[in-house]
Design a protein around this nucleic acid. Structure first.
Length: 812
RNA sequence: GCCGAGGUGGUGGAAUCUGGUAGACACGCCAUCUUGAGGGGGUGGUGCGCGUAAGCGCGUCGGGGUUCAAAUCCCCGCCUCGGCACCA
């Protein structure tokens, strides 16, 4: 009798030994081919929960598999430590964010180590330490020098609860803050932006990278490229210098149907255009729309309203005077912030026109139009009417024809519009990397010289949010000298969005302690780009888009020489608890420690692998975990317990099963189908149990089968496989062994189950040699006693034979 | 409204890419054996209906279609989940 399987003991033992031996230390000069496998680093807002494990474990299994396949695998771990949530949590508890964050890291690191992953802890990075954020600041300077970071006054998303601005990507759902779910409001502020819009087109190109369709489609959607026409309406108004108003439209074929113009309330021309008698009304409306939350403003339920400015412009195509209105359904941030309203052919314009009794002339005729007024907007293609020289043209052709005519006259041109906005990176908060900029009365905006980096985040600042950056009130930080003229100057007091920190962390892992630069260039070139990147899909239009932009930007600056950071992306699903995402604030987190302490890390690892397809996620349910625990015990006794008397199971059959399992497991890991990989290993275990009961153990085929089982199990359950490997007398470590190969000859079946159908219904299953010919198979089928009754009195009209599988007899 | 992913036993899921034995593997449940004490173990059964059984019929969201053969391919519809959404 072997001793009992005691996961706590063996897991602790081997983790200690692996650490002592530096077994997972990654060498840059290893001659084997490199494989950079990265899992998204966790955010340090609290303890790890099983959602993190669900992210990390299958990635670790894959990395372990690649090691055994002979690759030099870099699979590092670190912590995303700056940012709002950590700061908010710290404030709530009355502790300093640095202390809070480092406490969390201390505990998270302990938890992560308990999973027995291959992380090389000597490469750990923490983004809130000066040795890291020095280089975040450095990248900011590089982007600034290249004109890719700029400061501008703009209407921005303001979270009243977090008391800071947010990037567009961080406003989610119905206009609420991504972190605290407070409705955001609009404010006009002077802020720092990264020019991501410059890369809009390149970011739409996913050639050469293997990403899930879902993520690509979300990014395309977010970038929102649409082709259209810019049309200039003539303006002659004493209040403004401009002689035109430009609009963007995808329907230039409807331009003869324009009956009014709508500007966004924040449009710069509004003040100048408003006539004295409309002034009060317009100003009230502008104020109202500014005060509204995004939810109210963007609600499609809300009835469209607006006010007339009293001014007019001219539609150059027909010379008509067009009244200029303002309405909050027009967005300043899209197109030109001005819309030519064609009520007959746009639902929103139609509703607006009805409300304010504006004319609705039809210029695109529906196929069977009777000439009467429309009951609703007609937005489908049709025939152009009341459109001068374009009458009779199909509207699809009209789009090009009108655009060409406008271009010829100089009144417009073909153009492209994007939904994506530049990335707003300023945060009026304490817990972030300082923006390395100094404002001097004499010299203006002056970047901090590289030699003065890092601009240290002062530890003794009063960090509670006030709506302005807390650093403004820290005199030693705020007051400084101008690097150019030496005169008195002030520091930029906003900090950077934490997504800036995570836009380059995968570069730092290649040389995490390098002091002369953000990374050692030779090492970066060796490892990058990342071969396999895994993590949750919640980052589709944030981190994953920002990181792609960042790489393209620093490529153009000459810092890196590749185009895409992540060659293959796999998005794992999300583990839910109570049908919601796990989060500390919702109080529904499930802690993995209890499972590790009671059942062991290997069991929990195996359970995550077995749950279902990794990209699916789902509700957390531990009711099946006992099955995984039983399997571990079965393997334990299978390998260690004595066996019974001699039996008769053939070596060849054993070898065949072994090789078929190698093939199945290998292919499943390659295709990231971990649940069926585990199932195959379970089947193999069940089979070996039967073989053992019959007694044919102790021979070379049995030894090979057990050895293979342990090797195939090693990535999933690294501790038990190491222990059993050791006890079976093989050399340490199982994790340094090559992955087993299969012999294709042994994988082939010798015997098949011939399925016999009559008219497509299964009537018999007959064991047959794999070498059976079509003729023999059909004859076997016809001879079957089970099949005969279905043929009686019928005429056989067709016989289908699928080699190695089935015969279908078609009768009439 | 638009984009994406899905819908299979009591449950998680397999088979879908490549049309060919639906329900692998596991949980749960039922029966049975084992003095068996801390998350027991063995054996058998378990889609639904009829039947002691052999077996027969019905079954992969609904409706059509293609095919000798459809969970799988095509069309229409319904539902669920995720994302985007007054984008002119």
């Amino acid at each position: 009798m072997a001793d009992r399987y005691d996961p706590q003991e063996i897991e602790k033992k081997w983790q200690q030994k692996w650490a002592d031996d530096d077994l997972y230390k990654v060498r840059d000069d290893d001659p084997r081919p490199k494989w950079y496998s990265l899992t998204m680093f966790p955010y340090t807002s609290g303890d790890l929960h099983i959602g993190h494990w669900y992210n990390n474990i299958p990635a670790d299994v894959h990395a372990r598999y690649m090691r055994m396949r002979g690759y030099n695998v870099l699979h590092p771990y670190g912590f995303d430590a700056f940012g709002l949530p950590a700061e908010n949590a710290a404030i709530k508890r009355g502790i300093h964010p640095f202390k809070w964050t480092m406490q969390n890291i201390y505990n998270m690191r302990r938890q992560v180590k308990s999973i027995g992953a291959v992380y090389d802890w000597s490469r750990e990075i923490i983004t809130c330490l000066p040795e890291y954020y020095k280089w975040t600041e450095w990248f900011f300077l590089k982007l600034y020098e290249a004109g890719l970071a700029y400061r501008a006054r703009a209407p921005v998303n303001w979270c009243p609860d977090c008391q800071t601005v947010l990037a567009n990507e961080q406003v989610v759902g119905e206009g609420v803050c991504e972190r605290c779910e407070t409705p955001v409001i609009r404010r006009d502020l002077e802020q720092w932006f990264f020019r991501i819009t410059k890369y809009a087109d390149e970011l739409l190109n996913f050639d050469g990278i293997d990403w899930p369709e879902r993520i690509k489609s979300m990014q395309r959607n977010w970038i929102g490229k649409s082709f259209g026409t810019e049309i200039s309406f003539a303006l002659d108004h004493p209040g403004v210098a401009e002689k035109e108003i430009k609009v963007f439209t995808t329907r230039p074929d409807t331009v003869f149907g324009v009956t009014f113009m709508v500007l966004a309330p924040e449009h710069p021309l509004v003040a100048g255009l408003t006539s004295p008698e409309k002034k009060a009304e317009v100003e009230a409306y502008v104020l109202k729309s500014r005060r509204q939350s995004e939810i109210e403003r963007l609600s499609t339920e809300k009835e469209k309203d607006g006010v007339f400015t009293g001014a007019y412009c001219v539609n150059r195509l027909n010379g008509q005077k067009v009244p200029i209105w303002i309405a909050d359904y027009v967005l300043l941030s899209y197109g030109t912030g001005a819309v030519m309203a064609v009520p007959a052919h746009d639902e929103r314009d139609f509703a607006f026109a009805k409300k304010y009794r504006l004319p609705v002339p039809v210029v695109i005729s529906p196929p069977d139009w009777d000439g009467r007024d429309l009951k609703e907007a007609y937005i489908e293609p049709g025939t152009m009417v009341n459109s001068g020289r374009f009458d009779g043209l199909p509207s699809q052709q009209g789009i090009d024809a009108v655009t060409a005519y406008l271009a010829e006259k100089g009144w417009g041109k073909r153009t492209v519009s994007y939904k994506i906005r530049d990335w707003l990176i300023s945060r009026q908060r304490y817990w972030g990397a300082p923006i390395p900029i100094i404002y001097c009365k004499k010299c203006g905006t002056v970047p901090v010289p590289e030699k003065d980096l890092p601009v240290l985040l002062p530890e003794d600042a009063e960090f509670k949010p006030t709506g302005e950056s807390p650093l403004k009130y820290h005199q030693q930080f705020f007051n400084t000298k101008c690097p150019k003229c030496g005169g008195p100057a002030e520091r930029e007091t906003d900090t950077m969005d934490t997504f800036v920190c995570s836009s380059w962390y995968f570069l730092r892992y290649t040389s995490p302690h390098y002091e002369k630069a953000a990374f050692d260039s030779a090492k970066m070139k060796h490892w990058l780009p990342v071969d396999f990147y895994t993590g949750g899909a919640e980052h589709a239009v944030m981190h994953l888009l920002y990181a792609r932009f960042f790489i393209k930007a620093i490529r153009d600056i000459g810092i890196v020489d590749f185009d895409e950071p992540f060659l293959r992306l796999f998005n794992n699903g999300i583990i839910l608890s109570g049908h919601e995402k796990m989060s500390k604030s919702k109080g529904n987190v499930v802690n993995p420690d209890d499972y590790v302490n009671s059942l062991g890390a290997d069991t929990l690892r195996g359970y995550f692998m077995f749950l279902g397809p990794w990209d699916q996620g789902g509700e957390w349910d531990d009711s099946g975990i006992s099955g995984m625990s039983r399997w571990m015990k079965r393997i334990w006794t299978l390998v260690l317990d004595d066996y019974k008397s001699a039996g008769s199971r053939g070596d060849l059959e054993l070898a065949r099963f072994t090789h078929r399992t190698i093939k199945k497991v290998t292919e499943d890991i390659e295709k990231i189908r971990f649940n069926t990989m585990v199932a195959a290993l379970m089947e193999f275990t069940n089979y070996l149990g039967k073989v053992k009961d019959e007694g044919s153990v102790g021979n070379p085929a049995w030894d090979l089968a057990i050895k293979t089982l342990l090797l195939l199990l090693a990535p999933t359950a690294p501790h038990i496989s190491e222990e059993l490997w050791h006890r079976a007398g093989y050399d340490y470590s199982i994790h340094s062994q090559p992955w087993p190969h299969w012999n294709e000859d042994l994988v082939k079946e010798e015997e098949i189950t011939l399925v016999v159908q009559v008219n497509g219904k299964v009537r018999d299953r007959i064991a047959a040699p794999a070498s059976i010919t079509g003729q023999e198979a059909v004859q076997t089928a016809l001879d079957s006693a089970r099949v005969q009754p279905y043929l009686e009195g019928k005429q056989v009209v067709n016989k289908i034979y699928v080699p190695g599988k089935l015969v279908n007899i078609v009768v009439k």
